[in-house]
């Protein structure tokens, strides 16, 4: 399933990829537009990447026939390493997918997935009231 990116995701230059297991990975190529302090990716850009891969992974898990409105409740981002001037990748794991709430964990890395640069715990509400 092809992820349809939001205008925000397009502005950020996000690219959809797949890992060897077919899991969704979103790449954020380095550009001036994602730079924070000199030489490093902005923490806000990393959070945006983590959120985007989380919502896209959730959307895939829900499938074509189940299209609730995904409403972000909260995001807790933790930064482990400075992300430098190279492409950053992110993928998400859905820890629980309920009727009304989903709990998702996302990680971002650069050259080594074993050395993540940031991670996020993301809770969302699934609103089917408009369905």
């Amino acid at each position: 399933m092809k992820t349809s990116f939001s205008p925000y995701a397009q502005t950020m230059g996000f690219e959809e990829q797949r890992d060897a297991d077919g899991r969704l990975v979103i790449a954020m190529p380095y550009s001036d537009g994602v730079r924070g302090r000199p030489g490093f990716v902005h923490g806000g850009a990393l959070a945006g990447l983590l959120e985007t891969v989380a919502y896209a992974t959730l959307s895939e898990a829900l499938g074509e026939d189940d299209r609730p409105v995904i409403k972000p409740v909260n995001v807790t981002a933790t930064y482990m390493r400075g992300a430098v001037e190279m492409t950053t990748y992110a993928r998400a794991t859905i820890e629980r997918l309920g009727k009304r709430i989903a709990n998702i964990e996302a990680i971002a890395w650069q050259d080594d997935i074993e050395k993540p640069v940031a991670m996020a715990q993301i809770n969302v509400m699934l609103d089917r009231s408009r369905g």
């Binding site: 205008p7 925000y8 923490g43 806000g44 959120e51």
Partner: peptide
């Protein structure tokens, strides 16, 4: 924005 139809801002820019 996160969705062209609703015009709602994505959460990423608010985080930034």
């Amino acid at each position: 924005v996160t969705d062209t139809a609703s015009g709602i801002l994505a959460s990423g820019p608010i985080f930034t």
